[in-house]
Design a protein around this nucleic acid. Structure first.
Lengths: 258, 258
DNA sequence: CGGCGGATTGAAGGGAATCAATGCTTGTGG
DNA sequence: CCACAAGCATTGATTCCCTTCAATCCGCCG
């Protein structure tokens, strides 16, 4: 069994953990009272021109937050996995800068933004939303550092490790294998590379026996080797999941998404 | 007089603008009741290992949020100007991932995080903080897109324009000239480039008569030319300043920082 | 003066982009 | 059932942006 670098302290400040947890439960309950929607691969969940867009909870599937440049290029600034909340800033921002589209078939719930604002009269919900926004920001900070200071191989390693840890922390995977339903072009757009170069770099990771990334399946062969590639990226390397309780080093065995 | 691309709608959603404004005023008042501190160039305002770090309001000077990699490299993930609030996520996050240091002599006020949490019992303050976090996130999204998809010249153009617009929007500058107290190395660390290449690119901008950036002084020669370099980056290109009122196209003539 | 941080410039090398061509799946329709 | 097309993956050759290494220069301060 490989070593997991999960010994970091939880991200949430101790004094608000309880409140954040409580807020998370309230929001979650509200989400679960709404009907489930589903979207097919490639469909747009929230357009970038959409105003007063709702808040989404992803039950299933991967969602990308992308941002199209006028010259046809594209940047995917975030990859969201089941359990993530989409569109947090819609509460306060009228025009988000990215559009959200389904990378796979996706099941999700939607809360009208007005409903969210009403829920925010509860202080705990406010705190929870802030905590979620802080998490998103943390991912974005990390992405910015990666793209500014890491080469292609390290970027891919960091990306794979990040997804791996998020999925694992939510109990969605147990071993070192998981599904990454993104095309190489999407990975390239996320990491600021080209399709071709991503392909070559994946081959190198394979040749170096660090990870097998074929089609949509990732098999981590040498997790310590991957970690050493990203050595220098800011810790903590995992994201807390408030509503899971405070057991930080062990991901729950049961799936959290019904 | 050149054209300013300030005709975008305000970022804040219409239905919360009033609340956000009100929260901004409350927080601001709390800040102004605390003593002013000052820090000299290069000093660390908030260390990256610091827990329960305070919230800072910058009255004067430039502050950088930097993140050191273990191999000695560095990434500056944000540049903060007078009027910005530093450390928004300390409310909910115990360990931030960046350290904040003064790029110039800096005057600021500090609010203990416990005080901020107390203020957050007020709903408007909560909203304001979320709005501020959304702004930070927006900057970060933009940075990620820049570093992923723009070349050196466009990155520098985008950076200069962004600082320019933020300063101008706060009434801190009027013309096309302003102070940018960063070394070329700091600019490089912010944009994911090297010192040497930043230098060369600045020369190119000079030769192309787009902008003069010498030492700490920026003189924008061809603002439309700069904009066309960055064509494709997500709008809106300016950031709203809630407590300044809703006049979006005109920056107030009076300085807002006493 | 000497040292130091920062800016500037040259030469050489490398990592990634671009251009281009070829397989490989998968799904669709004849 | 097969043909065909579309999307995706793979690979080679070439180009170029940016880095690295190195040297020099400038302004400033002790």
């Amino acid at each position: 069994m490989p070593v997991f670098k999960d010994q970091n302290p939880p991200l949430s400040a101790a004094e608000v953990v309880e409140d954040v947890l409580s807020g998370a439960r309230k929001l979650r309950r509200a989400f679960l009272e709404t009907p489930r929607h589903s979207a097919s691969r490639g469909s747009v969940l929230i357009a970038d021109s959409e105003r007063e867009a709702p808040l989404l909870l992803i039950h299933n599937g991967f969602v990308g937050a992308s941002c199209a440049l006028t010259d046809g290029r594209r940047a995917i600034i975030d990859v969201l996995v089941p359990g993530d909340v989409v569109g947090l800033d819609h509460v306060v921002v009228s025009r988000p800068m990215s559009e959200f589209s389904a990378a796979t078939g996706t099941a999700y719930s939607a809360l009208q933004i007005a409903t969210v604002r009403a829920l925010m009269n509860n202080h705990d919900v406010c705190l929870h939303l802030m905590e979620q926004m802080a998490q998103v920001r943390w991912r974005r900070d990390r992405l910015a550092v990666m793209m500014g200071r890491l080469d292609a191989e390290a970027r891919i390693a960091a990306f794979v490790l990040n997804i791996y840890q998020r999925l694992r922390h939510r109990g969605l995977i147990n071993g070192l294998t998981f599904n990454l339903p993104l095309t190489q072009e999407q990975v390239a757009d996320h990491l600021g590379l080209t399709l071709v170069h991503v392909n070559r770099t994946l081959r190198r990771l394979r040749e170096e026996r660090l990870a097998l990334i074929d089609r949509q399946v990732v098999i981590i062969l040498d997790i310590d080797g991957l970690h050493s590639l990203v050595r220098g990226l800011p810790e903590p390397s995992y994201l807390p999941e408030p509503w899971m309780g405070e057991n930080s080093s062990e991901a729950p065995a049961t799936a959290v998404l019904r």
